[in-house]
Design a protein around this nucleic acid. Structure first.
Length: 586
RNA sequence: GUCCCCGUAGCAUAAUUGGAUAAUGCAAUCCCCUCCUAAGGGAUAGAUUGGCGGUUCGACUCCGUCCGGGGACGCCA
């Protein structure tokens, strides 16, 4: 429809030029929009406002001229000038009704498009360290990331969802050591647990199982474990030095093989738990990408070599640095520490090189907002690797700040005090959790009041939308109980009987679904789809209360049934895309 | 201190990315089941879009500045 109007306006511009009102060189961007208010017709253009200046006239006069030059078209019933010079288009009712047929024919594919043109897109999200269960902050990233990916898929991109597993590095060493210390407690040793260790209950569970299965295999007397270890912070020492010493003690006492077993046991249990958690949350991945694999197959070395060849690597203070400040970063960054270990950033350079090598046209990283300072250095790395930097898109998700009533809930994985995604799901349900998370713009700070979310009231908007769907199903059951049959063709032949204001409002809204989907996807804003679905549900509920569908007049009845079935189809398509259930009854 | 994000009715969020009278849900007041689930609907009230300047036909949106909230500034990940 928009395209149709656009070609009509192209003709007008050509005429304006040939009449000498406009200069030949001017190539205005034709902007056609949906109107907010039905009084303003269906579509509007600001063309006259934009061209008034170059045409050296006032907008309303120019609008007059434009309408005069506008070719006749069977779809357009009326054209008006309004406000400062907007041109409003009214579409004929007949062409509006077509959408009901289109929805019926399209079924669950209605609204999908091919504008992505099969371009390869990778979306990486959540990627939480496997050092503990996912918490509600990760939940937001999971809901948002999967929604963005699924929307892109729906509009024709070839999407691959990926989780980057940080299964290497110091945090994982801290995890392994924490497990070992808890294990020693299981063995009966009396251990003073480090303040910087992971204190969560799940660590004890893992330790308990290791002890159950392997007995005292990993046991060493606590005196040997703590001998000559620098003091922890509560004892007036440094917690970082303390934990690092404990890590290296664990490695020495256990030896490489046993240490690795312990490390692997922890990683497997926690990662499996994360996978289950996400799957239950309706989030699936094509790829779980291991950071450790980048070390084992020399990817990190290769990446650093490439940076070196490009002239961006130097040595200083015993460490290896990447000269990212030459490429837009604030300062240079260490990639190999003076102890020979590569940094997390080095892994990430290799990871992004790997992504590029896999041939993605677009790489989307969804990160927590605390990582925003990290973006310039990754961009610098991509530039140094000679990649097209515009391929990388980083979307930031603000934290969800939890409240219990007015009380702020403190959260830190390390302290062991956090609300897990699992707890949230079991309290409010998976549908509601997903809906809530995605309802807000991602960069918006989000206050999540657990009391409110857990109070099982009808404040939950997800019920509102689902109920609209269930109501249509209910009407169809009633139809059946009355011994009536739906006559699809009769309904389609009588769509012109849908003249009530509630009906035209609903039809107009339905016709907006494809463009809403497209915008949501291309702008990475699933909340737009949620808002649309809420509007649609509202429009349906209003209609439901105002009119009876199962009327005696067979023609009207079937026309109305076709309309509400179209609404049901669109509700179902939208909710399914967001992985939210569409109940037949509630 | 430097940098980034945010500030919209009492609360939580929208606003077709610079468009027309700033929208929706909760909360408040009133009304609607002899009727397809009232987990619904209708009506009323509620806003100087944090403040002040600027850009233009037109600003919640862009620029400047100030105020307030959050975050980032490691040889951690």
């Amino acid at each position: 429809m928009k395209q149709k109007l656009e070609t009509l306006l192209q003709h007008v511009i050509a005429s304006l030029k040939s009449e000498g009102i406009l200069d030949q060189e001017i190539m205005p961007k034709i902007n056609i929009e949906r109107t907010k208010d039905a009084k303003h017709g269906d579509f509007a253009t600001n063309l006259a406002l934009v061209l008034a200046k170059p045409a050296k006239t006032n907008p309303r006069q120019l609008a007059d001229k434009i309408i005069l030059l506008l070719p006749e078209d069977s779809l357009v019933s009326k054209v008006e000038i309004a406000g400062p010079g907007f041109i409003n288009f009214f579409i004929t009712a007949d062409s509006q009704f077509q959408i009901i047929k289109q929805i019926h024919d399209g079924g669950q594919n209605f609204g999908l498009s091919q504008i992505g043109n099969g371009k390869k897109v990778q979306v990486e999200f959540v990627s939480a360290n496997p050092t503990g269960p996912l918490h509600v902050g990760h939940g937001r990233g999971a809901a948002y990331g999967s929604a963005v990916a699924d929307l892109l898929h729906a509009v024709g991109f070839d999407v691959s969802k990926e989780y980057y597993v940080n299964d290497a590095g110091r945090q994982m060493d801290i995890l392994a050591t924490s497990i070992w210390l808890r294990y020693l407690e299981e063995c009966g040793e009396v251990v003073v647990f480090p303040s910087n260790g992971y204190r969560g209950e799940y660590i004890r569970d893992i330790a308990f199982n290791i002890h159950k299965n392997s007995g005292n295999e990993y046991r060493h007397p606590v005196e040997l474990v703590t001998e000559d270890i620098p003091a922890d912070e509560p004892q007036g020492g440094d917690k970082e030095l303390h934990i690092d010493a404990l890590i290296s003690r664990a490695k020495t006492l256990l030896g490489q093989s046993l240490y690795r077993d312990l490390f692997q046991a922890g990683l497997t249990v926690i990662l499996d738990d994360i996978k289950d958690d996400l799957e239950e949350f309706g989030v699936s991945y094509q790829e779980w990408f291991s950071e450790r694999s980048l070390m084992e197959d020399n990817s990190i070395k290769d990446a650093l070599n490439r940076l070196d060849t490009a002239g961006y690597i130097y040595e200083k203070d015993g460490a290896t640095w990447f000269a990212s400040s030459q490429l837009g970063d604030e300062k240079d960054r260490v990639v190999v520490r003076d102890n020979g270990q590569s940094t997390y950033f080095a892994s990430d350079i290799a990871y992004h090189m790997n992504k590029l090598d896999r041939g993605f046209d677009q790489i989307i990283n969804i990160w927590g907002a605390d990582h925003h300072g990290y973006i310039p250095r990754v961009r610098a790395a991509m530039r140094a690797l000679g990649a097209d930097e515009s391929k990388l898109k980083v979307l930031l998700v603000q934290f969800a700040i939890l409240y219990r009533g007015t009380e702020k809930v403190p959260m830190s994985t390390r302290s062991g005090e956090f609300v897990t995604l699992r707890q949230l799901r079991s309290e409010v349900g998976t549908d509601a959790a997903r809906f809530f998370y995605v309802m807000r713009k991602s960069e918006q700070h989000m206050d999540f009041d657990l009391k409110l979310a857990t109070s099982k009231t009808n404040e939950n908007p997800v019920f509102y939308v689902q109920y609209a769907h269930a109501r249509v199903c209910s009407v169809l059951r009633q139809l059946d109980e009355k011994g009536l049959k739906r006559n699809l063709n009769l309904g389609m032949d009588n769509l012109d009987k849908l003249t009530e204001s509630h009906e035209t409002a609903l039809i107009t809204l339905l016709s907006k679904y494809p463009e809403t989907l497209e915008k949501s996807a291309l702008q990475y804003e699933p909340h737009q789809l949620i808002h649309y679905l809420r509007d649609l549900a509202n429009s349906f509920h209003t209609y439901y209360n105002a009119h009876q569908f199962l009327v005696d007049d067979e023609a009207v009845r079937n026309a109305r049934l076709n309309l509400i079935c179209a609404a049901k189809q669109v509700l179902s398509n939208g909710l399914s895309l967001l992985n939210i259930n569409t109940p037949e009854s509630m």
